[in-house]
């Protein structure tokens, strides 16, 4: 069953202005449930833009996106936010954690947004902290942990609401090779447990661990 389908997806930045830029040029893509996909390409080719469109954080200029057969272009911003909360888990290159909160609070956040009570959210967060190997760091502030640990927190947060799809944009981009390998092992284990994994990376070694590689060049799929 396809988890994600895109049809003639197009994204134009600064449309109608002098610096108009066609970032995604009519991409058609189908990603099955449980697949592990790597989207690769050189810097500025449009791979992160494609991930942002699939994740509903950004909106396409033209074309359609189906998430589990549901077309999302007519959804309101709030409906998309709810979809992101329920279906997706995000892992960003810059980690995107909330620095004023502790490790535990960052991980509980998606569950609190889902209206889970604080106690239950913390119970699950502690399990996830254990799962990503951050035992004892619950009450640390984000500034008190390493980059590799931050990415583990981001993965734990991504798993908070039992997502069906994990979207990871250069998840190892800011990490040393050892930490990068460890993060990839965690992500691959999650994929083995049935979660669809879509990774954007320019690192071919990482891309090669995926079941399918989608290569983007100048906003188009050149190899799939």
């Amino acid at each position: 069953m396809p988890a994600i389908i895109t049809k003639n997806l197009q994204k134009i930045f600064n449309k109608g202005k002098n610096n108009e830029f066609l970032a995604i040029k009519g991409i058609n893509l189908s990603i099955d449930e449980g697949e592990f996909i790597a989207i690769t390409g050189s810097s500025g080719c449009g791979k992160s833009t494609l991930l942002n469109l699939i994740s509903t954080i950004d909106s396409p200029t033209e074309g359609k996106i189906y998430i589990y057969d549901k077309e999302i272009s007519n959804m309101s911003d709030d409906e998309k936010a709810i979809l992101r909360r329920k279906i997706f888990g995000f892992v960003f290159q810059q980690f995107n954690l909330i620095n004023s909160l502790t490790v535990l609070e960052n991980i509980t956040m998606p569950m609190r947004l889902e209206d889970l009570n604080k106690k239950k959210a913390e119970e699950r967060a502690r399990l996830l902290i254990k799962q990503v190997g951050l035992d004892g760091k619950e009450n640390n502030k984000i500034s008190e942990i390493s980059g590799g640990q931050m990415q583990r927190v981001a993965i734990a947060r991504a798993l908070a609401n039992n997502p069906k799809i994990i979207l990871a944009d250069e998840p190892t981009g800011n990490l040393d090779s050892k930490s990068g390998m460890q993060i990839m092992e965690i992500l691959k284990d999650l994929n083995k447990s049935g979660i669809t994994l879509i990774i954007v990376t320019h690192d071919l070694n990482i891309a090669n661990t995926a079941e399918r590689i989608i290569k983007i060049k100048d906003g188009e799929i050149v190899e799939s």
């Binding site: 994740s55 709030d78 992101r84 947060r157």
Partner: peptide, 12 residues
């Protein structure tokens, strides 16, 4: 921070 909250599913 608001952007992060929205990305992980916070509504307006």
């Amino acid at each position: 921070e608001i952007g992060i909250m929205k990305a992980i599913g916070a509504t307006r």
